[in-house]
Nucleic acid binder design. Structure first.
Length: 429
RNA sequence: GUGGUUGUAGCUCAGUUGGUUAGAGCGCUGGACUGUGGCUCCGGAGGCCGGGGGUUCGAAUCCCCUCAGCCACCCCA
C-alpha cells in the first residue's frame, strides 16, 4: 500500500479519473443526447480512437495549432504514423467515404459521443483528454440543414436546462468569395500593421482571419472598421446565410450575428457558429460547428456538402454545476439489504441476494463480517428501502424478517417466498 | 510553449518568528445498544507535510530543482 510517493504512478497530465459520481454524469448526458438526437434522426457512430495521421493534417490544416503542436502522434510497431483523434469530423467523413454511406438516402445524419486528445497545457475547461458530443449531417447544401443542426444544439442545451448559452453565428463564405475577401482584409491589415500586436503581425501573413480572434484590446479596437466577411459574401453565400437566419427565427432560436467569429479548423465554409457561456472562464465555448462543403471531396469522395457541430462535455458539466439547475449527485438507492445475524447463514444470504438481483431488484449484503448493528447502519446509509434480516430463530422456522426501513414496520416472511413477494412489491414479475 | 499561483490524512483545511511524538471537521471503522438503522457520546485506523537536493544543532515552515493542480496567455470543446 505504501509505495513511495515518488514511485507512484499517477494519471497523466491533463487527464482525470471519472470516479462513479462523475462517470454517472457523463453517462446521463450520453443517454439524454441519445434521446434528443434520435428525435432529430441522428444515429450513433463510433470510429477508432486513433487514425492515420494524414487524416488530421489534411483536414484541420497544416498551419493550425492543433496540427502543428497539439496532436498525440506516434508510430506503431508496423511503422505507421498514427494520431489519437483531436476531433471527430475528419474520422466521420473518412468513414462516410470508406463505407460509401453517400449511396444511402441523403442526408446521412450521425452523432458521436467520444473522447478526444490534444496535447495542450491544461487550464479551466481544457484538458488533454476530453469528451465531445457532436453531430455530422452529410449530403445537403440546404440552409435548413444548417438551421436544423444549430437548433439541435440549442435544444439539447435547453433539455439540460443550461440557460447561459449565447449562440453566435457567422459565415465564412465559399471558394468564390473568401479568397477575394482575404485579400481585401490582408491589404487593410497591412496598412494598419502598426496598430496590431506582434502576434497579429504574424497572423496576418499566413491566416489573416485569425486576427479577429485576438484578445488584445488594441487589436480589437483597430479591427472596428475592418472589412467583414459577411459584408463581402457572394450572392449565393448571402442567400444561404439569409436562409439560415430566417429559419432560426422561425423556430425561435435566439442568436446573434458575430462578424468576427473565426473557428479553428480550415475546412469550414459558409455557416459557422459557436455557443458561448459566461459561466466558463477563458475557455468559454460550450461548443461550435459549421458547414464544410469541401471536406468530403477533398478526401476523394463524391462532392458532398455537410454541416456539423461538437459540444464539450466537461464544459457542459461545468456550466451545469455553475448554474446549479440540475442536481447531478443524486444519492444511490438500493431496494434491499440482507442482514446476517449468525454467520452460519452467510451463504444463504449470498444466494438470496443473487436471487433478488436476478429478478431485477438491487440487493446488497455485508462482506466485512460486520455486527448486526453495523449492518443496519450500512443499510441505512445505502438508502435501502427494506432490510431482510436472517435471524437464527426465524431461519430455524424457514422464515426471515422483512423490515421496511422508512416506517420501521417489520414482519416475518417465508424464506422461500420472500423474493417473489419483494418482486411484486417493487413491480417486477 | 510562456507567465502567475498553490501543493499538510480519502475530502475540506489549521499549523503561530524553523524547536521535542503533525492537528481539526467530515468520511471510514469499532463500541455504548451481547438480534435491529437514521440522533448522541466514546475509541481506532489513516500522513516520511507532492518528490529530490541544500542551509541549520534542528525544516511542514527558509533556498534551489522537479512533478502535479489551479488560473491566464496561446489556442479551442
Amino acid at each position: 500500500m505504501s509505495a513511495k510517493k515518488e514511485n507512484r504512478i499517477r494519471a497523466p497530465r491533463g487527464t482525470s479519473d471519472y470516479l462513479p459520481e462523475r462517470a454517472a454524469s457523463i453517462l446521463w448526458l450520453d443517454r439524454l443526447a441519445g434521446e434528443v438526437f434520435s428525435n432529430y434522426g441522428y444515429q450513433r457512430i463510433i470510429t477508432p480512437t486513433f487514425e492515420d495521421t494524414a487524416l488530421f493534417t489534411r483536414s484541420i490544416g497544416e498551419a493550425s495549432d492543433i496540427v502543428r503542436k497539439e496532436m498525440y502522434t506516434f508510430e506503431d510497431r508496423g511503422g505507421r504514423s498514427l494520431t489519437l483523434r483531436p476531433e471527430a469530423t475528419a474520422p466521420v467523413v473518412r468513414a462516410f467515404i470508406e463505407h460509401n454511406l453517400g449511396s444511402q438516402s441523403l442526408p446521412v445524419k450521425l452523432y458521436y459521443f467520444s473522447n478526444m486528445f490534444r496535447y495542450e497545457r491544461p487550464q479551466a475547461g481544457r484538458f488533454r483528454e476530453f469528451w465531445q458530443l457532436g453531430v455530422e449531417a452529410l449530403g445537403s447544401p440546404e440552409p435548413s440543414l444548417d438551421a436544423e443542426v444549430i437548433t439541435l444544439a440549442a435544444d439539447f442545451l435547453r433539455a439540460l436546462d443550461i440557460r447561459e448559452g449565447l449562440m453566435k453565428i457567422g459565415s465564412m463564405g465559399d471558394e468564390n468569395c473568401r479568397p477575394q475577401y482575404t485579400l481585401i482584409l490582408q491589404k487593410y491589415l497591412e496598412e494598419k500593421r502598426d496598430s496590431f500586436c506582434p502576434d497579429c503581425g504574424e497572423r496576418l501573413k499566413f491566416n489573416p482571419l485569425r486576427v479577429f480572434d485576438c484578445k488584445n484590446p488594441e487589436c480589437q479596437k483597430a479591427l472596428g472598421d475592418a472589412p467583414k466577411m459577411i459584408d463581402h459574401l457572394c450572392d449565393e453565400c448571402r442567400d444561404h446565410f439569409d436562409g439560415v437566419r430566417r429559419l432560426l427565427k422561425e423556430v425561435e432560436i435566439e442568436f446573434s450575428i458575430d462578424p468576427m467569429l473565426v473557428r479553428g479548423f480550415d475546412y469550414y465554409t459558409r455557416t459557422t457558429f459557436e455557443i458561448q457561456s459566461s459561466q466558463l472562464g477563458a475557455q468559454n465555448a460550450l461548443g461550435g460547428g459549421g458547414r464544410y462543403d469541401r471536406l468530403v471531396s477533398d478526401y476523394g469522395g463524391k462532392p458532398t456538402p455537410a454541416v456539423g457541430f461538437a459540444l464539450g462535455i466537461e464544459r457542459l458539466l461545468a456550466a451545469l454545476k455553475a448554474e446549479e439547475n440540475v442536481d447531478l449527485s443524486a444519492p444511490r438507492k438500493i431496494d434491499v439489504f440482507l442482514i446476517v445475524i449468525d454467520s452460519e447463514h452467510r451463504d444463504q444470504a449470498f444466494k438470496l441476494a443473487i436471487e433478488l438481483r436476478r429478478i431485477g431488484l438491487s440487493a446488497e449484503v455485508d462482506y466485512m463480517n460486520r455486527s448486526t448493528r453495523s449492518q443496519m447502519k450500512l443499510a441505512d446509509k445505502m438508502g435501502a428501502e427494506y432490510a431482510l434480516i436472517l435471524g437464527p430463530d426465524e431461519m430455524a422456522r424457514g422464515e426471515v424478517v422483512l423490515r421496511n426501513l422508512s416506517t420501521g414496520e417489520e414482519r416475518p416472511e417465508k424464506l422461500s417466498l420472500v423474493a417473489d413477494k419483494l418482486g411484486k412489491i417493487k413491480g417486477f414479475e
